[in-house]
Design a protein around this nucleic acid. Sequence first.
DNA 1: TGACTACATCAAAATAGTTTGATATGATAT
DNA 2: ATATCATATCAAACTATTTTGATGTAGTCA
Lengths: 103, 103
Amino acid sequence: MIDVVKIAKALSDPIRYEILKFLVRRDAEPGAELVSNCCSGLCNCDIMQVFGLIQSRVSYHMRELVDAQLVIEEQRGKWKYYYPNYQILKDYVKQIEANFLQR
Amino acid sequence: MIDVVKIAKALSDPIRYEILKFLVRRDAEPGAELVSNCCSGLCNCDIMQVFGLIQSRVSYHMRELVDAQLVIEEQRGKWKYYYPNYQILKDYVKQIEANFLQR
DNA sequence: TGACTACATCAAAATAGTTTGATATGATAT
DNA sequence: ATATCATATCAAACTATTTTGATGTAGTCA
C-alpha cells in the first residue's frame, strides 16, 4: 500500500512540486526542445539548469521524490534519467478520495 | 485559486491526516455515538480525548488545517466546531490531476 | 592510463515545523 | 461579580528538513 502522508510530504516542497510538474510536462511533450545536450532524456543537469539550482540540492530533492516513489530513476551511462510515476500519483489521488471524499 | 503545496504540507503530518480522516468519518456517520458530552458537534476537546493529545497541540494542528482551508471552524458558544471542507479537498484532487495526470 | 563529467554523500549551518507548559482571552453559568 | 470551561497564544525546547560547500565514486572519452 502507498504511504499517503509520505507522498504528501514529498509534494509539500515548492521546488519538488515544480520539478515534478516539469517532468510531467516534458514527458507529455516528447517533441519539445531538449533543455540541455547532455543526454536524450531529463537528467539532474537539466533540472539544475532549468531551476538554477546547485547540483547537491537537485540531487537531494530528486532523491526525496524517488524515495516517495513519485519519480522513477533510470541509470543511463553516467546520467540519471527521471520520469514521473503515474501509477503512484493515481494511487495517491484514489487514497485521498477514499479517505476524504467518499459519500 | 487553491494553494496546492500548502494543502500538501497540511496533509503531510500524520496527526493532522488522522484528525481530518476522523472528521470526515464522523461527518459521514451523523448517528455515531458522540465522543464527549461537551457539545453536539466535534470540538477541540473531542479531538484531545480521541487522540490523547494535550490542548495546545490540538489547537496548533487544527489551526494548521484551518489555515490550509481543509477544515472549516464554527464558533458555538465557547466551543469551536470543526468540519471538513470538501470543496477544497475536491479542488486539491483536481489540481493534482491537472498537474500530473493529464494525458 | 589520466582528465573529465554526472551524480552521491557527508557534515555543518541555516531554516522550518512541532511539542510543551504557562499564561491569556472570551464565553458561560452561578 | 466570580468561578469555570474551552480555546488561543506565547516562548522555549526539541526535532526535522533544507541548503551549502567539500569530497567521493563511477562512468566516459581521449
